[in-house]
Simulated assay, not measured.
Amino acid sequence: MTTNQTNQTYQQPAPLTFTADRLAGRVILVTGASSGIGAAAVRRFAAEGALVAAAARREDRLTALAGDLKKEGQDVLPVRCDVTDERSVAAAVEETVRVFGRLDGAFNNAGVPGAGRRLHEVDTEHFDKVVATHLRGAFLSMKYEVPAMLDHAGGGSIVLCSSTAGLAGGAYASDYSAAKFALTGLVKSAALDYARDGIRVNAIAPGLTRSEMLDSWLTTEEARAEQASHFPINGIADPDDMARAALFLLSDESRWTTGTVLACDGGLTAGR
């Protein structure tokens, strides 16, 4: 232990109280919120009582999503955000805090598909785009989310979206897998940086999940069935399955968990 750690007084955490709305009253920022796992997360978090800032590049989709949820009495703020643009990320966090007064949690989910080619065939520009979105985008998001949480002094929880490609390599995935493996280092290091500040940092690692990205790759039911057969749980997850995993890591139910990458992959990496 360092001297600073030794001088701190240990306090037993208060008993955990379970509620129906696990994010009740909390302000949560979701990036990549216009479709797939991100849109499902916005819906799930709002249903659990959160005040959600839905951030993405496609403003029309964000507006439509916020409108749908408003009819259900759920408060969602659409915020345009390109996670590869530092000023855009800073502005999205600033707008969230301006409207809701604080930031309690974030699900950094924005992503783009890999090239789907062998390494020597991957265009360098595309490699840079994948890394800029998945890795640098997550870094930039946390760079501005953390100070907002520190200002609030109530701690917080940040969840990144990794992938099974960040737990095991795969053919035709060098760009995507490299970015997702790097996220693990980002998660573990940030978790150690801010553990004493009450900010937890974790990630989920989805397996095969229905999304625009997946549907552009697997265009037929036959192709989807063939891919699903490689998973011990023979199927393709729904985006809400991943939203529920992120919800767990954002909520107090995981208050003793930080620096972890949670595999949500139907058992794919269990034997690797």
Rank of each mutant, 00 (worst) to 15 (best):
V79I: 15
L160E: 07
V42T: 03
P232V: 11
L208P: 06
D238F: 00
R210L: 02
L23C: 06
V112R: 04
L192V: 05
R43C: 01
M142R: 02
R196V: 13
R43Q: 12
D240T: 14
T17S: 03
A115F: 09
E145Q: 14
Q74E: 11
D175M: 09
N202E: 07
T2Y: 01
A46L: 07
V30S: 01
V261N: 02
N109L: 09
E121W: 07
L150W: 00
L247H: 05
G185V: 04
A245Y: 09
F231K: 04
L247E: 05
T3I: 09
S211Q: 06
D75I: 12
F139I: 11
G259A: 06
F248Q: 02
V27K: 00
M213F: 08
R196H: 09
A53I: 11
A203H: 01
R272L: 15
L262D: 10
F45H: 07
L51R: 14
L150C: 04
G116R: 11
E221D: 15
P206S: 14
D197S: 14
G73E: 03
R102E: 13
G32F: 00
F18Q: 12
W217R: 14
S216Y: 01
A132I: 06
A203Q: 10
T3K: 09
A179P: 05
S189Q: 05
T6H: 10
A263L: 07
G267E: 11
L218Y: 08
Q227M: 13
L77A: 06
R98Q: 15
A165L: 10
S229C: 11
A270M: 03
A138N: 10
F100M: 04
G111T: 02
G137Y: 04
R57I: 08
A237D: 01
A55Y: 03
G111F: 03
G267N: 06
S211F: 05
G105V: 10
A179V: 03
A50D: 06
G137L: 05
S216E: 14
G114D: 08
F18Y: 11
I236Y: 00
K143P: 03
K71H: 04
V261D: 00
F107Q: 08
T164G: 08
C81F: 00
T3G: 02
A90I: 09
V130P: 01
Q8C: 03
A245N: 07
T184F: 00
A50F: 04
L150F: 01
A39I: 10
T84C: 08
H120F: 10
L103E: 12
A46P: 01
V79P: 07
K188L: 00
A225Y: 02
Q74S: 10
A46R: 02
L262R: 11
I199N: 03
R87V: 12
V187C: 01
D252T: 05
D21N: 13
H230G: 13
A148M: 08
F18S: 10
G116K: 02
G266Y: 00
L103T: 14
A178K: 03
N7E: 05
V146C: 01
G105A: 06
S216V: 02
A90P: 02
H230E: 14
T9L: 02
